[in-house]
Design a protein around this nucleic acid. Sequence first.
RNA 1: CGGGGUGUAGCGUAGCCCGGUAUCGCGCCACAUUUGGGAUGUGGAGGUCGUAGGUUCGAAUCCUGCCACCCCGACCA
Length: 490
Amino acid sequence: MSKGITSRGEDYSQWYNDLVVKADLAEHSAVRGCMVIKPYGYAIWERMQAVLDKRFKETGHSNAYFPLFIPKSFFSKEASHVEGFATECAVVTHYRLKNDGTGNIIVDEEAKLEEELIVRPTSETIIWNTYRGWVESYRDLPILVNQWANVVRWEMRTRLFLRTAEFLWQEGHTAHATEAEAIEEAERMLDVYAEFAEGTLAVPVIRGRKTENERFAGALDTYCIEALMQDGKALQAGTSHFLGQNFAKAFDVKFTSKEGKLDHVWATSWGVSTRLMGALIMAHSDDQGLVLPPKLAPIQIVIVPIFRTEEEKQAIDNYVDALSSELKGRDISVKYDDRDTQRPGFKFAEWELKGVPLRIALGARDMANGTVELARRDNQTKETVSQEGLADYVVALLDEIQEAIYTKALTFRDEHITPVESYDEFKSVLDGKGGFVSCHWDGTVETEKRVKEETKATIRCIPLDVKEEEGICIFTGKPSRHRVLFAKAY
RNA sequence: CGGGGUGUAGCGUAGCCCGGUAUCGCGCCACAUUUGGGAUGUGGAGGUCGUAGGUUCGAAUCCUGCCACCCCGACCA
C-alpha cells in the first residue's frame, strides 16, 4: 500500500482503502500498478459517469463500444501517435496455454498469433479504422461517438488513481466535415469538462491549451483543464484534442462534400479518467478523510440514530422513515445507519472518513425536543435544528455546502497563481509556496525543456483567456506576447 | 531501466548488528458492562518471518540468487 497520495506526509491508506486498493497479487507482476475499486469508490465513479454521460447526450453524442485489442499494424499508420504510445503498450502474442507435463501451465508456443494484438492504450487507431467504413458523404457527418472503457498503459512508474497501469475512462471520438466544426467540438467538450469539474466536483480548473511539447501524440492542438491540488502541485484533469486530418489521412477516411469534392474528415478526441477521483481526493480531503461535494456524493445524507432501548429505536425509526421518503422525493440520497454493531461515535467518524456531506443524528433527547443534530462534513460544524421543515432546510444546506467547498478550493487556487518577472523569483515560488507560476516564455520547446530540467516545472497550459501583453521570457530574455502557467505537476 | 530503501498475522511494527521457532498496537471472535464523538474489562483465534538455495546441531537473524513493493530519476491522463 502506498502512502497518502496527497503527499502531505500523512498515511491516508486507512481511508482511501475504503475506496480502492492497489492490486495486491504481489507475485503477479502483470497486475502491478492496477487498481481494485471497491464498491464505495466505484459508486463515486458511477456518479461521475452519470453526470458526464448526461451532458454528452445533451451535446448530441451517443455511446458505442470498440474492441479491447488492436492489431499491431494499426499502430504504424500514424507516426507521431505510435511514437507517443509505443513504449508503454501491453502486447498479446499467444492465444493458448498448455500443461507442460509436470503440472506447470505454460504458454503454448504453437499458439502464436500471426499478428500481435495491442491492448488499447487509447482507441484512436481502431476507431478510425472503423470510421472509414462509416463515412462516404457529408451526409454521414458528423460522427459524435463516446466510449466508456478501460485502457492499459504500461507505465514505468504507477501512482494510485493518477497513473495506474489500467484505468477507466471515457473517450469521445468525433468526425467532422470542416476544420472549424472540429475545433468548435473540441472546445465545446473542454467546456463540458470544465463545467463538470467546477460544478459537480467543486474543483476549479484553468482552461487552456497545451504547448507543442505537451501535446497529445497525433494532435494538432490539445486543450486541457488544469487543477491545483492542496500540496501545490498541478493536475491535468481532462483533455480535448483537435486532431486535424491526421487520423483520417492515416486510416483513409474520406467523404464527398456538398460541392462534390473528395476530402479527409476532421477529427477530435477527448477524455477524462478515474484520475478525476484522485483530483477529488487531493483537492478537498482533510485529516478526517474524504470530503465529497453534495452533487457528487453517492450518499448525501447519513442518518445516525442514538438509542438505548428498543422503544427509543422504534420511535426514531418511525420518524426517520417519514424523513427519508420526504428527502428521497427531493432526489436526496439518504443512508440510515441503524447498525447495532457499532456505537454512534464510531459511525460519525466512519462516515466522515467516507466524505458524506451531511449527517443527521438524533436520539431520545431530540425526539423529546422535536430536534435533530446536523453536522457538516466540509467545515466540521454542528447545529441543532427543528424537525419542523427539516427537509427544506437540508436541501438548501446541501447547496450551500457545494458552494462552500468550491469557494474554498477556488480561493486556495487563486492564491496560488503567482505572477513572476524573473527566473530567480520563478524558482523561489516553485520551491516555496508552489502552485501555478504565471510568466513570460519565449515560445520555444528548447526553453521549456531546459526549465523542466532545472526546476521540474512544466508549462501546464496557455490559458484560453490569456491577455496579450508585451514582456520578456524569464529564461532567455527574448520577447513574449503573453504569459503562460508553469507548475510542478503530477 | 538507473540510484536508494523495505519485505515479520488483515493493517502498522519490535526483534536482525551479537543465531536458540517471534514482540507490541490496531483490527477480528466470545462474554460482560457500555452507547449524544472512533468504549472498557476478561478470555480467545490468527504467522510457510517475500522466495529459492547455502552455512550451522540449530536461521526471522549470517551468505548468495531471485521476486515484489516504496521513494527519487527518465516516461506519462
